[in-house]
Design a binder for these strands. Structure first.
Lengths: 225, 225
DNA sequence: GTGATCCCGTAACAATTTCTTAATGCCCGC
DNA sequence: GCGGGCATTAAGAAATTGTTACGGGATCAC
């Protein structure tokens, strides 16, 4: 997989080069900008995986730049770490409020810088953790959490009910007879009476309403298209 | 067996290239498009096995493109995975019900992307064994869903009526006498009076109109050529 | 452990839909 | 007008599903 790309925005060229050198050694791709304006331009072009942003800069300072980034739909989810010479608590709070994800005061050892970068990236990777989710009609069926959501409502369905709903929903519109449902949801060599399916369908309808699963008499059930 | 082909539609060239690189490494063939319009064109030409569709795009956004694809008989059954920026989640996700089969928020690790793609393909392989749909005249008789469609109208016929219609429609133009129909639709060792067929024919005509099934006096019935 | 709770499968009966039959009327050819 | 064949209708039978209740078993907290 391609390297993670980090955009470093700082007006001190020497520091920029130093950071670049160390990040590259760690296997990151590095983009550089010397002020906020340029930083935004490059961010838009390259969509880096993380931004290291100095606060004090000419032209457009880091705070402003971050505001712009956070307002941009395509960039707003990029993690940002502030860099500043001032270890001023007030500034720190302000920076985090504006949308920074971490805050580092200069000077800092490169080891520490890198570990902070990795920490932030890890955190983001975790929050971007993908859910196995099906969205049908107004329902959201989350297979990782075994939870069904409709708007603000959350439904905690028991296992079999959930799996039956998930199976039908993932084959939206297609009719499945009871035996097929038993084989697919209960398992191939499970001995249960096929009317068991009916009971589970009823329980699902009881909780979610009866307009999701349709009955096709003489055939089976289907999730409404 | 030929590789599965995936069409990736996204306006970010870099992301497009990154995804292409990774999918190819996994043995997929990759088609690329930078907006919805182009995506549809390529989809029609090449009939990919799956579409990865960005939502936010210039010209024609992903949502519109998917609506077009879902309205096209030849493309409607292609699985589609939406890509969306995390921030759009709440609002945009609602629209996914338009016909996405899954959706993924950016940024995403390629490992996850590929596993999701494979998951969706597995799901479709299982269900797309055969398309049991007949398109005759202005009717669409879908045996998977047990639904007959004419334009926007949907008709939910009871089982026997549906099967009778399906049988006749699948042998368009050929006359079948009542006994044959009973054997084929009802089953070989079912004892019912052959006039029963008449009643079912009538019910079908009552629902769909009487210009589909023709009576051949002294012989039987046939679906209009 | 022990009790409480929840989930699952089953069975029984009610409710509903579908199917079949039979009776009647209609159309057409003779 | 008569007869054969089909259409139409209604009503009861049959099939299928909905609904409820219950017991066994798993799980969890204490």
């Amino acid at each position: 997989m391609a390297n993670k790309t980090i955009l470093v925005v700082d007006d001190e060229k020497d520091l920029l080069d130093l950071i670049e050198y160390n990040l590259k050694k760690e296997g990151f791709d590095v983009l550089k900008a010397e002020n906020g304006e340029e930083g935004i331009k490059i961010a838009k072009e390259h969509k880096p995986d993380l931004v290291l942003m100095d606060i004090m800069m000419p032209k457009m300072d880091g705070m402003e730049a971050v505001e712009v980034i956070r307002a941009d739909d395509e960039l707003k989810s990029i993690p940002i770490i502030f860099l500043t010479a001032r270890s001023d608590e007030k500034t720190e709070v302000e920076g985090l409020n504006k949308g920074g994800d971490d805050y580092i005061t200069k000077p800092i050892s490169t080891t520490k810088l890198i570990s902070r970068i990795k920490a932030v990236m890890r955190r983001f990777d975790e929050t971007e953790e993908e859910v196995n989710r099906l969205d049908v009609h107004d329902l959201s069926i989350d297979k990782d959490r075994y939870i069904v959501t409709r708007g603000e409502e959350e439904f905690q369905l028991p296992r079999k009910e959930f799996e039956l709903l998930y199976y039908l929903a993932s084959r939206r519109g297609k009719v499945r007879d009871r035996q097929t449902l038993l084989n697919k949801v209960w398992g191939d060599n499970v001995y249960v009476v096929d009317r068991t399916v009916d009971v589970h369908v009823r329980k699902i309808r009881e909780k979610l309403g009866d307009h999701y699963i349709e009955t096709v008499k003489g055939v089976g059930y289907r999730f409404k298209e």
